[in-house]
Design a protein around this nucleic acid. Structure first.
Lengths: 225, 225
DNA sequence: CGGAATCCTCTTCGATACTG
DNA sequence: CAGTATCGAAGAGGATTCCG
């Protein structure tokens, strides 16, 4: 409807920002990096976006060719938005901004919301291949959402949805997940306290947290408020 | 004055966007990657920004700690803005967005403006080390701006300002620079037509364009990194 | 019920004018 | 030169309503 606003510069950075520079756009991409999502999934996963703005962004992103609308095959059959190849090409940008933003993360603020999806995107670029064991698959249930993490010696992948044949299934809440990944909470403590449950290999949570130590070592807290 | 708007998500990507997500911010960073700039330099280098918005952005970026205000040593003595270490950490993000944006670049549109600074940021990530010769320094004069490019076997650096002891000094306009880098215009033709002048080693412009082939063909998908 | 379009208020943007 | 002040236009954010 509206003519897309452009910086009007013949520059790859400016042109990229013409496409992804609007508010919320890159956060929609972040969530879609974990797989296709329904409108409602995105809406509830991005508190504050407002339904009109989400609809507008999805329209613009579709027009730009970075997402597409499709229907999942039966039995799901739901209509979803997913990244195109051009949209997948945004992962390095999301990662780079995340690395930059990590230095401003500090401690959670009072009115910060913790979103499970964010962690399963973040760990992709925080993967430290362990002692080169065999590939391992974890299924996480966090606050009603389900994620699959597959760790191989040469990298890891994450997506939203259930795993085929996981080595372990871990259930927890996002606060505990944050504590495990960013605050050094030990898996033993989390399990003993009942903040996390595991079925399958009981040592899997240990190996998981070891592979994804996100502790902001060089974090410079500069939160203005 | 205004409370900075935040996504309110405890997520490195969202926090990063809280800092750099506002309109124009990342383009200011792009220009500052070439070195310190005065207010006026930024204003004229970013057509359309508007002086109040530039002032607001510089204030916010200073508060966030990604730029700082300083005075250049005599004899220049001008007051300038420059990136802090935290601001320099944005180069990977700028590069990643540039790689993504390259696929939307196409041909210049009627109302696109060509900005010399953009090219000297872009070539940083398009450097293909040549046949490992000795380091070479080029000084460019483009539409009243001066740039220094230093190419070494293991990388290249670019900055705004005159070179100390350049191997060649090249004068041209931004349209010709664009044609040389993106449209395959041959240096011989450019020099013969008088669209570019060179002093020093006359073959230097050949070596330069060879090192920085940005042609869409070569620019498309270098996403291996 | 999921997927939006509409309405309304508030903030931000962009351009111009003006000041130290 | 380096900003501040002002103002109309556009965009963001929230609630409600509509559509299938």
């Amino acid at each position: 409807m509206t003519v897309r606003r452009s910086y009007g510069q013949y520059c790859a950075v400016a042109r990229g920002l013409d496409v992804i520079g609007d508010r919320w756009t890159l956060l929609i991409v972040r969530d879609l990096l974990l797989g296709p999502k329904r409108y409602k999934d995105l809406l509830t996963g991005l508190p504050g976006i407002g339904t009109n703005l989400l609809a507008a962004r999805l329209r613009e992103m579709t027009a730009a060719g970075i997402i597409e609308w499709t229907e999942l095959p039966p039995p799901a059959g739901s209509s979803v938005y997913q990244l195109t190849d051009a949209g997948l090409a945004l992962e390095p940008a999301v990662t780079a901004i995340g690395r930059f933003g990590a230095r401003f993360l500090g401690e959670p603020r009072r009115d910060d919301v913790l979103l499970p999806r964010s962690y399963f995107v973040a760990i992709r670029s925080a993967f430290r291949p362990g002692p080169a064991g065999r590939p391992e698959t974890y299924e996480f249930h966090v606050d009603g959402l389900v994620f699959t993490v597959t760790a191989k010696p040469d990298g890891c992948s994450t997506r939203e949805g259930a795993a085929d044949d996981p080595d372990a299934v871990i259930s927890t809440d996002v606060a505990t997940l944050n504590a495990l990944l960013l605050e050094g909470l030990s898996p033993q403590t989390a399990l003993a306290d009942g903040r996390a449950q595991i079925s399958g290999d009981p040592a899997a949570l240990d190996r998981f947290t070891g592979m994804f130590a996100l502790h902001p070592a060089a974090a410079v807290d500069r939160s203005g408020a």
